[in-house]
Simulated scan of single mutants.
Amino acid sequence: MTPQHNWRKSSYSGSGDGNACVEIADSPARISVRDSKDPAAGVLGFAPGAFGAFVRSLKERHAGAS
């Protein structure tokens, strides 16, 4: 984790103390994801295109479950 990351919580984190949330930081070269409850545990890094495809598939899956 580097200090230049501008971390923000997912808009789907829920209310209250945010027990089920992730934080995301992006740059042109990489999307970084971490657990907001334990930010020192590590960071997952994704190429922007791969992360975009992942998010689209989640949205499609969620829309199909309704």
Rank of each mutant, 00 (worst) to 15 (best):
M1S: 09
T2S: 11
P3R: 01
P3Y: 01
Q4F: 14
Q4C: 00
N6P: 07
N6Q: 15
R8L: 05
R8C: 07
R8M: 11
K9L: 13
S10Q: 04
S10V: 00
S11V: 03
S11R: 11
Y12V: 00
Y12F: 11
Y12L: 03
S13K: 06
G14D: 05
G14L: 04
S15T: 14
G16K: 01
G16Q: 00
G16W: 10
D17A: 11
D17V: 07
D17P: 00
D17E: 09
G18Y: 14
G18P: 03
A20H: 10
A20F: 06
A20K: 04
C21M: 10
C21H: 06
E23S: 12
E23Q: 15
A25K: 08
A25R: 06
A25V: 07
D26W: 07
D26S: 15
D26E: 14
S27V: 13
P28E: 15
P28A: 09
A29V: 05
I31Q: 07
I31T: 13
I31P: 12
S32E: 15
S32A: 15
V33Y: 06
V33R: 03
V33K: 05
R34C: 12
R34F: 12
R34H: 09
D35W: 13
S36F: 11
S36W: 09
S36E: 01
S36L: 14
K37C: 01
K37S: 09
K37R: 13
D38L: 04
P39A: 09
P39F: 06
A40D: 12
A40N: 10
A41M: 08
G42Y: 09
G42L: 03
V43D: 02
L44M: 08
L44D: 01
L44G: 04
L44H: 12
G45Y: 12
F46N: 05
A47P: 13
P48W: 00
P48Y: 02
G49P: 08
G49S: 05
A50M: 08
A50D: 11
G52T: 08
G52P: 01
A53T: 07
F54M: 10
F54C: 00
F54K: 01
V55F: 00
R56I: 06
R56M: 02
S57Y: 07
S57F: 07
L58M: 14
L58P: 00
L58W: 09
L58S: 02
L58R: 11
K59V: 10
K59D: 00
K59C: 05
R61G: 01
H62R: 13
A63G: 09
A63L: 12
A63E: 14
A65D: 05
A65T: 03
S66N: 14
S66K: 07
S66R: 07
S66D: 11
